[in-house]
Amino acid sequence: MKLAILSRNTSLYSTRRLVEAAREQGHTARVLDPLRCYMRIACGDFAMHYKGRPLTGVDAVIPRIGASVTRYGTAVLRQFELMGTCTPNPSDAILRARDKLRAHQLLAAEGIHMPITVFGDNPDDTGDLLRLLGASPHVIKLTESSQGTGVILAEKPSASRGIIEALRGLYANFIVQEFIAEAKGADVRCFVVGDRVIAAMRRQAPAGEFRSNLHRGGTAVGVKPSADECEVAIRATRVLGLGVAGVDLIRSDRGPLVLEVNASPGLEGIETASKKDIAGEIVRFVAGGCTPVKAVRGRRKK
């Protein structure tokens, strides 16, 4: 199989591991910078060039598209799809996952639980918006943030209003959520490939921090997720139409809640914590046909 990995940096751990795993399994692997791909679009005729040469014969693409290049990166991926190339994470699924507001609406519509979330635009409605949410603390998130950036904890209603006003002044898109105190700064990342959770890790925020992201100094240990956590992670991945995802869950008094579904989850933390060959599992899934589970309307859970 001729495999392409869309990534802006060949030295990143996740990119290197995917290349290694592909070659270990006898495939040809090439890293493509999505910003160096360019396209010809005509009725029934789609072509791609890379650094001055035609790009043909690619059997499958594994997208590792960073948040800063989402728009162009997903356009490149869509072109590959139109050229008949297989991918575990289609372009539209990545766009659904990247927009936190859209993802939360889709997940909630399918009965998947998450922290209570509110969203509004007009400054005159801020007071009532926060009343809809409930008592502080509140968590304020930019809708396209990643790795814990753009996630703020407001401990008092006045702080929530001030942060909301500041973000609106910057024309930023954001959501506001309830703070799950009983989680005590921890979450669980379930790594989903196809229809299985192949690994999981529990991440703990450092002292004085509520974000458990490893990029923020959090620590991680491998864990065995519960049956409920596996079910929620797989359903969330399916609803968004992804074949590979990192689903972040928080353990609450009312069961597992989905914080985020990451369409380009990093491999270093999960491989280190779980001691599992995640890259190899992804490549095997892709080589097996990687027909992702399409976005579906499943049964609602009361």
Rank of each mutant, 00 (worst) to 15 (best):
K302G: 12
D124M: 10
R189H: 01
E81F: 02
A186F: 02
A295N: 10
A186K: 15
P206G: 01
F285K: 11
Y50A: 05
V19F: 06
T126C: 10
T126H: 04
L132E: 11
A205F: 04
R238N: 12
D187Q: 01
I270R: 12
F191Q: 11
I152G: 01
D187G: 06
R53Q: 14
V31N: 08
V193Q: 10
I5W: 07
S7I: 11
A75M: 14
K224T: 15
L133Y: 00
F285M: 13
R254G: 08
L259M: 04
T74G: 14
D45K: 14
C190T: 01
M114L: 10
I65F: 06
A186W: 00
A200E: 02
N9S: 11
K302R: 14
A263G: 06
L77I: 10
R17F: 11
I65Y: 05
K294C: 09
A4H: 06
T272R: 15
G266T: 13
E165L: 13
P54Q: 08
T126F: 08
L214P: 01
I250R: 00
H27A: 12
P292F: 05
R40Y: 12
T272D: 02
P225F: 04
I164G: 02
R23Y: 05
H49Q: 11
F80I: 06
R300A: 04
A200W: 05
V223C: 11
G241M: 07
R64Y: 03
I164L: 11
S146E: 07
N122A: 14
E281R: 15
R17P: 03
R40Q: 09
V192Y: 04
L101G: 08
A273Y: 02
P206D: 01
D228V: 10
A279E: 05
V139F: 01
G222N: 04
V286Y: 05
T74F: 08
I65H: 02
T117Y: 04
A22T: 08
G111Y: 08
L167E: 07
G246Y: 11
S14D: 03
Q79S: 14
F174G: 06
A60S: 12
Q79Y: 02
V247F: 06
V31T: 10
S11A: 12
K276G: 03
V239R: 00
G127H: 14
R131S: 06
T143Y: 02
Y38M: 11
